[in-house]
Simulated scan of single mutants.
Amino acid sequence: MNYTDTKQNMRKAVLIAKTLEGSWSVRMKMALDIVIINHYLKQPLSKDIIERLLLKGLSLRRIKKHYKVGMKEINSLMAS
């Protein structure tokens, strides 16, 4: 992610955080996670993207559903 992507993602996160309720720091953390996950889901499927999505707390089920692949494809990417 470069500087302009980061800047755009922060702007999107602030808009999302303003719609949520509760502590600002918690809202911002949740909004940033949402924006970052959406950013990575727009990228082509690769081992690095799968690892980053899993670190952000996204489930394998959602990754499979979004990319329309099976566990065999994901396992083959993770093994290489």
Results as ranks from 00 to 15, higher is better:
M1K: 09
M1E: 05
N2S: 09
N2C: 12
N2P: 07
T4I: 02
D5M: 09
D5L: 08
K7T: 13
K7Y: 02
Q8C: 12
Q8G: 07
Q8K: 15
R11I: 13
K12C: 13
K12W: 05
A13E: 05
A13Q: 06
A13C: 06
V14R: 09
L15W: 08
A17K: 04
A17E: 01
A17T: 03
A17N: 03
K18V: 12
K18Q: 15
T19S: 14
L20I: 04
E21R: 12
G22N: 04
S23K: 11
S23M: 05
W24Q: 09
S25D: 14
V26W: 00
V26Q: 07
V26P: 00
R27L: 00
R27G: 01
R27Y: 02
M30A: 12
M30T: 14
L32K: 01
L32F: 00
D33A: 11
V35N: 10
I37P: 02
I37C: 08
N38W: 03
N38K: 12
N38V: 06
H39K: 14
Y40W: 11
L41M: 15
L41I: 09
Q43T: 08
Q43N: 11
P44C: 00
L45D: 01
S46P: 10
S46E: 08
K47P: 06
K47C: 09
K47Q: 10
I49Q: 13
I49L: 10
R52E: 08
R52M: 11
L54T: 05
L54P: 01
K56M: 11
K56E: 06
G57D: 01
G57T: 06
L58E: 11
S59V: 05
S59A: 06
S59K: 14
L60A: 01
L60S: 06
R61V: 08
R62V: 08
I63N: 04
I63Q: 01
K64I: 10
K64R: 15
K64H: 11
K65L: 14
K65H: 13
K65M: 13
Y67Q: 01
Y67L: 05
K68Y: 01
G70P: 09
G70D: 14
G70I: 03
M71Y: 12
M71V: 13
M71R: 12
K72R: 15
K72C: 04
E73T: 12
E73Y: 05
N75K: 15
N75M: 14
L77H: 01
L77K: 00
M78R: 11
S80C: 06
